[in-house]
């Protein structure tokens, strides 16, 4: 009987560990998913990784020179803009970074993900992001 109780004890102790042990579907901190139009147009949503870009560019390059507003969902960027060299297209032109014909490199998110900033910390604001 005490054996059974011990086994039960172990199982109970493992429940929180099991929950904690599942890798969270959390992205990297500050990853942005963009899906205003992508999926409606038959493409995977876009993932913009802040970590990758800030190793190479300071915030002000995109948020000042290129005019990206600092609020997810507030930048209405179309593929035609990018091809014309605006927004992402200022670098993604085959010169500084890969050209817009490399669709899958940006359009790489799971289908069904809504636009938003992901990988947030525990104190993520009460729903604003």
């Amino acid at each position: 009987m005490s054996q059974v109780r011990r086994i039960l004890q172990v199982c109970l102790l493992l429940i929180p560990a099991l929950v904690a042990g599942i890798p969270p579907a959390a992205a990297e901190y500050a990853d942005v998913v963009l899906n205003r139009r992508a999926e409606k147009e038959g493409m995977r949503p876009v993932i913009f990784p802040h970590w990758f870009h800030r190793i190479r560019f300071r915030c002000k390059v995109c948020h000042q020179e290129l005019g990206f507003k600092m609020r997810v969902g507030s930048n209405d960027v179309r593929m035609s803009d990018i091809v014309e060299g605006k927004f992402c297209g200022a670098c993604h032109n085959g010169d500084v970074a890969w050209a817009p014909d490399q669709c899958d490199l940006c359009h790489s998110a799971k289908r069904g993900l809504p636009t938003g900033i992901y990988g947030g910390h525990e104190t993520l604001g009460p729903g604003r992001w």
Partner: peptide
């Protein structure tokens, strides 16, 4: 990571 599509051709290139 829960956001990238594991089947995306980008996975081994990014």
């Amino acid at each position: 990571d829960g956001v990238h599509d594991p089947r995306s051709p980008a996975i081994n290139r990014l």
